[in-house]
Simulated assay, not measured.
Amino acid sequence: MENIKIDSSLSFGGYNWRVLDIQNNTALIITEEIIEQRPYHDAYKDITWSDCALRKYLNDEFYDKFNAKDKSRIIPVINKNLDNQWYHSKGGPDTQDSIFLLSLEEVCKYFGDSLSKLNNPGKNQRYWFERKDKNNSKRLAKLHGGGYCWWWLRSPGRVNVKAVYIFGTDGNIGIQGNNILKGNIGDGKCIGGVRPALWLNLEL
């Protein structure tokens, strides 16, 4: 594929994707839009990415929407699932994924560089995502066919019945997390947005 570079857009498998990283003729890509809305898990219980219903859906039903040629270009990877740095909730074991959600660390790395704030939080650490991070606007995403909406990351929130997410109004990172089953109970639009990510072979 020609003219593929970081932050460019490409079409693959019927979706438009944003290129986040390129390594050895492979690219990390994420859908430009929120493609659908789903809960992180199908029950209100302690859970990590490795066992959640959304991971199973992405690696089974969603993956099977791609044709054989496209599947051959999707590279399975081992994902690290770190504990929440501020609340120490468990991230769970490493996982092998063909399709996945970005982690807290990855979204801080690839949507501008916010890793220094993640790794060196200030005294008002709960709020730096909300009020001060210059990269917030880069994380905004629209629901397919609609307006801006919040979307899930795979990292745990402050407890393991919550998962980290990106606010829909201004792109802040909700490090405390939303309810894995009902999402943000207070806003009436309770189900979180899904932006799948994958590593794509650029040579095929």
Rank of each mutant, 00 (worst) to 15 (best):
13 G>L: 07
161 V>K: 10
18 R>M: 10
120 N>K: 09
72 S>N: 14
21 D>G: 13
184 N>A: 14
101 L>N: 04
83 D>S: 10
35 I>M: 09
78 I>S: 13
94 D>H: 11
13 G>A: 11
33 E>N: 15
69 K>Q: 08
83 D>M: 05
138 K>F: 02
58 L>T: 01
98 S>K: 13
93 P>E: 05
182 K>P: 00
127 Y>Q: 08
185 I>S: 13
131 R>I: 09
199 W>G: 09
109 K>V: 04
104 L>A: 01
55 R>P: 02
107 V>W: 00
176 Q>H: 13
13 G>P: 06
95 T>L: 05
152 W>L: 09
103 S>C: 03
170 D>S: 11
44 Y>L: 14
197 A>F: 00
155 S>P: 05
126 R>K: 15
96 Q>S: 14
153 L>H: 00
48 T>C: 12
194 V>K: 04
24 N>C: 14
156 P>M: 03
168 G>R: 01
68 A>V: 15
187 D>V: 07
14 G>E: 08
27 A>Y: 01
17 W>M: 07
106 E>K: 01
180 I>L: 10
108 C>Y: 00
6 I>E: 11
45 K>E: 12
132 K>Y: 07
61 E>K: 13
110 Y>R: 03
128 W>G: 02
72 S>R: 12
87 Y>A: 12
139 R>N: 03
135 N>E: 04
78 I>Q: 14
97 D>S: 09
196 P>S: 08
97 D>C: 08
39 P>H: 06
7 D>L: 10
174 G>Q: 01
85 Q>C: 12
